[in-house]
């Protein structure tokens, strides 16, 4: 087991450390509440339990992928391949289930293995040849998409009940097992980041990789594991995706990497690395999902949808910047 370093290692008391975190959540929560209030005012049917359970059941894929993306961005990398890797995993899963008639557990394991392998390849190539992860994962975006077309013969595959009820709402609570798992992944990601040595190394590498190396720690295994984790979570996203839509579409997840990056950045994670929070990324996912669902529900036109979504992403980040300057001032006072 990894022994978590105490807060004293970082030179600040637990109280100081937890304060900005809570403020961070509050800021994003405010944006979320504002959006919900706005859509509730615009549509008579928005503010209902069914809206929120449906929304929750739609986001598990994006949520787990955003968790992986958060860790990658904090380590000062980027993973552009997540959408394609998800599609490749989905295609393999559908094939395993429908064509090869494999048991669900084996098919799911295959899908996760595909994600993990893609992530390992990303990480390994990044550190072995010191290629920027932007380029490596851009390459993987193409390779995995091609792979998805190859295994699915560019066709949508209907899976139906072969995925069990993973993506279907549970009775009474109305949430799907996939959503509950995704929330658990969020908390596991947050614990990994803030309470383990690996998490500390990820932050340290994102802040100053050279300093980490000079202090006698090899950053390479850490970077590889971060990309491997992102790939694995993209594979998990594929499982959720197929479970939810009852089918696998080789064109799914195009542009998903941008949604994930948007969610993570709205959550305040720095694109430059070294700073971020997994729970905040989850709030970012919720903001994007509420926006998407709300705009569809009020029947917004296509141009309006695009313009509003873009504007909210930028506005949320500006708000975040303000909150940070305020927070820093308070700390320095």
């Amino acid at each position: 087991m990894l022994k978590p370093p105490t807060a004293a290692d970082r030179g600040d008391s637990p109280a100081v450390r937890s304060l900005p975190r809570i403020a961070e959540y509050l800021g994003l929560m405010a944006v979320l509440v504002l959006l919900v209030a706005l859509f509730s005012a615009l549509s008579a049917h928005f503010f209902s339990r069914i809206t929120f359970t449906t929304l929750a059941n739609q986001i598990p894929s994006l949520t787990v992928i955003a968790v992986g993306m958060t860790l990658v961005l904090i380590a000062a990398g980027i993973d552009l391949s997540v959408g394609s890797v998800m599609a490749l995993g989905s295609a393999v899963l559908a094939l395993a289930r429908v064509e090869w008639q494999l048991p669900l557990s084996v098919a799911v394991a295959l899908c996760l293995a595909v994600g993990l392998l893609a992530g390992l390849a990303n990480g390994f190539i990044t550190v072995r040849w010191a290629v920027p992860s932007f380029i490596v994962t851009l390459g993987m975006l193409e390779v995995a998409r091609g792979g998805a077309y190859l295994v699915s013969e560019s066709r949508s595959v209907f899976v139906g009940a072969a995925m069990g009820r993973v993506g279907m709402p549970l009775p009474v609570i109305g949430l799907s097992p996939a959503f509950i798992l995704a929330v658990l992944v969020v908390f596991a990601g947050e614990v990994l980041l803030s309470k383990t040595i690996l998490g500390r190394y990820i932050v340290a590498i994102g802040t100053n990789r050279e300093a980490v190396r000079l202090s006698g720690i090899d950053p390479r295994p850490v970077v590889v594991s971060v990309f491997a984790l992102s790939g694995l979570l993209a594979g998990l996203g594929g499982v959720f995706h197929v479970a939810y839509l009852e089918s696998a579409d080789p064109n799914s997840g195009i542009g998903l990497e941008l949604s994930a990056i948007a969610a993570v950045v709205i959550g305040g994670t720095s694109l430059m690395g070294g700073r971020g929070s997994v729970v905040s990324s989850f709030l970012g996912v919720l903001i994007i999902a509420v926006l998407q669902t709300g705009l569809a529900q009020i029947g917004a036109t296509e141009p309006a949808k695009r313009i509003v979504t873009g504007a909210v992403i930028v506005a949320a980040v500006i708000l975040d910047a303000y909150r940070h300057t305020l927070g820093n001032r308070r700390e320095h006072d």
Partner: peptide, 19 residues
Amino acid sequence: SAHWEQDEANTVAAAILRE
């Protein structure tokens, strides 16, 4: 519009069904 896509069609259809 759901841009010919399954995933987006699901989100949009779910919203329309509620509305």
